[in-house]
């Protein structure tokens, strides 16, 4: 090493080097210990963030706290749970003057829910994800009066999978979880068969 000939006497070199090698070994051992500790419980699969729909309170933080300008959280729907109601409390604002598709009657601030007549008296409501901002207004509406077919989920084509999710940090009910990347969704189950 370059500094060998720069130290003053021989004994200093040896002590220095002995200490340095000792500390070097200690660092290696500690790294090995950390690696061993991790190795015992490491997971091959990465984890991703997801919302537990049964814990979510649809507070609206998802729309604003995401680091992306347009949140990675969107509303999704399990159609098997939906009652296909004519009066959909996720679609209509409380106090809507008429049950039609006029904008003033809609609960969704971006008009992302499409209402379509299927057969009397059933209507199908679908979500246009491009318009959805993940505010959860419809989720709340559906949960308090309907079947709860609508709920918020992290959409993994958008989510950056931040090490600390800033929505999770702002979630009032602790609904955000790390889930295995091969099962990235927590969907609601149907009660009716």
């Amino acid at each position: 090493m370059a500094e060998d000939n720069k130290t003053i006497n021989g004994s200093a070199i040896n002590r220095r080097h002995f200490l340095r090698d000792g500390f070097w070994g200690a660092c290696m051992v500690s790294l090995g210990a950390v690696a061993g500790l991790l190795g015992r419980k490491y997971k091959k699969k990465d984890t991703v963030w997801q919302i537990d729909p049964y814990t979510c309170v649809a507070c609206g933080n998802c729309a604003t706290y995401c680091v992306l300008e347009e949140s990675a959280v969107k509303c999704v729907k399990v159609f098997a749970i939906c009652g296909y109601c004519d009066f959909c409390s996720a679609y209509y604002e409380p106090g809507a003057v008429a049950l039609d598709t006029a904008a003033e009657n809609q609960l969704c601030p971006t008009g992302a829910i499409k209402r379509e007549f299927i057969e009397d008296p059933y209507y199908e409501y679908t979500i246009d994800e491009k318009l959805c901002i993940g505010c959860g207004k419809c989720v709340k509406g559906c949960a308090v009066f309907g079947n709860g077919a609508l709920f918020l989920q992290v959409r993994h084509d958008r989510c950056l999978n931040c090490n600390e999710c800033s929505i999770a940090a702002a979630c009032p009910s602790g609904a955000f979880k790390r889930v295995p990347a091969d099962k990235p969704y927590l969907l609601k189950e149907t009660v009716h068969t």
């Binding site: 159609f79 098997a80 296909y84 057969e119 309907g146 149907t190």
Partner: peptide
Amino acid sequence: ALGAERFPPPEFVETNHQLPPI
């Protein structure tokens, strides 16, 4: 309680409408 299925999901007898897939 949240999310109870108050309105039974319909059976579309007339149109035989298929639910959009999960």
